[in-house]
């Protein structure tokens, strides 16, 4: 089974859940921006959650399926279409060979994930399939997909082909992953206070919690630059570099904020005002430039409880997906 890129999109990369364990070399975890969408995409096609997926942005790529395949598309809604027919999202779909996947219209979100049953045949770099663009390693030769690229997949989805009706280009299987909870209230982002929260002056603390912040167009996979009322420290101070994390909100010297995203550097020296809770990173990852965020404070205990509840729901979903698929092919 293989696919080929007819036309690349804005930024199409192969990503998994991240490359952990190499921070002491300055190598960041990277990985998908929206871990929920990527994990679900894999579950729907019967893959392990850490199988690499294709992360695409808008405008999206055009991709040719050279064989029949079982795929799933999750995350952003770019009107994913197969030839001229709209494909359902968050569902397993059997697609016929020689059809072309494309993304004509932006409806919602910033990143869309495509999983293929079996997962791609590519090499791991330092324990992960994620593309690290800075290091030019991982994923497809350490770079975004280009025109003419072919990606082979480990398993043939041939036994799903029998599910295709005579002249249909695809068949959506009759179950769907529920994502309502995850992207509910998309602009409300919960945070826990960071080490330097108390160094903000009182009115800046109020401003942080009362005002909206706009995601600046220069935002990318490394970080979201925010635009809003400038915040001030009680008194200026110098910090030496220390570890930062996906979701860390730093205060820049000009009083503006930046939220570190999947491709953030491993260490930083700006004050850490707050940290976005893990359960809200997926919806943050689906916000676009010019969208606004409003921060709400929660406790680490509440954040952890929510993360664990979400993880349990994912386990249930994974089991259900596996059972449904097994029932089909047995």
């Amino acid at each position: 089974m293989s696919i080929s890129v007819i036309k690349p999109g804005l930024l199409d990369t192969i990503q998994d859940l991240g490359r952990y364990g190499y921070s002491h070399w300055g190598i960041n975890a990277g990985g998908v921006m929206d871990r929920f969408a990527a994990s679900v995409a894999n579950m729907l096609v019967g893959n392990c959650v850490d199988e690499p997926v294709l992360e695409v942005h808008f405008p999206g790529p055009q991709i040719l399926f050279e064989q029949n395949a079982l795929i799933a598309i999750t995350g952003a809604d770019f009107s994913a279409s197969l030839n001229e027919e709209l494909l359902p999202l968050w569902k397993p779909v059997v697609v016929r060979k020689n059809t072309v996947l494309h993304f004509p219209k932006l409806n919602f979100g910033a990143r869309c994930y495509i999983s293929v049953h079996g997962g791609p045949c590519i090499d791991k770099w330092l324990g992960s399939y994620s593309t690290n663009l800075k290091a030019a390693a991982g994923g497809k030769d350490g770079r975004p997909l280009r025109k003419g690229d072919e990606i082979h997949f480990k398993e043939n989805s041939i036994y799903f082909a029998g599910l295709l009706h005579d002249d249909a280009n695809f068949r959506a299987l009759p179950w769907k992953a529920d994502n309502n909870k995850i992207y509910h209230h998309p602009h409300e982002i919960s945070v826990i206070p960071g080490k330097e929260w108390e160094e903000l002056d009182a009115s800046s603390q109020d401003n942080f919690l009362d005002n909206n912040f706009m995601i600046h167009p220069s935002s990318d996979r490394m970080g979201y630059q925010l635009k809003g009322t400038p915040l001030n420290l009680k008194k200026p101070f110098e910090l030496i570099s220390s570890g930062v994390n996906f979701g860390t909100i730093q205060l820049l010297p000009d009083g503006q904020l930046i939220i570190l995203m999947a491709d953030h550097q491993t260490t930083g020296g700006y004050p850490r005002i707050a940290h976005v809770i893990s359960s809200h990173l997926p919806k943050l990852a689906q916000l676009r430039p010019s969208d606004c965020v409003k921060f709400k404070v929660t406790s680490i205990r509440a954040a952890e409880d929510l993360l664990i509840a979400r993880q349990k729901e994912l386990q249930v979903l994974h089991r259900a997906c596996t059972d449904h698929l097994n029932a089909l092919v047995c």
Binding site: Y22, H24, S241, S242, N245, T267
Partner: peptide, 12 residues
């Protein structure tokens, strides 16, 4: 993961 810096250790 373990991130070491000048005078701090962070774990993920």
């Amino acid at each position: 993961d373990i991130i070491i810096a000048y005078s701090s250790v962070s774990i993920v």
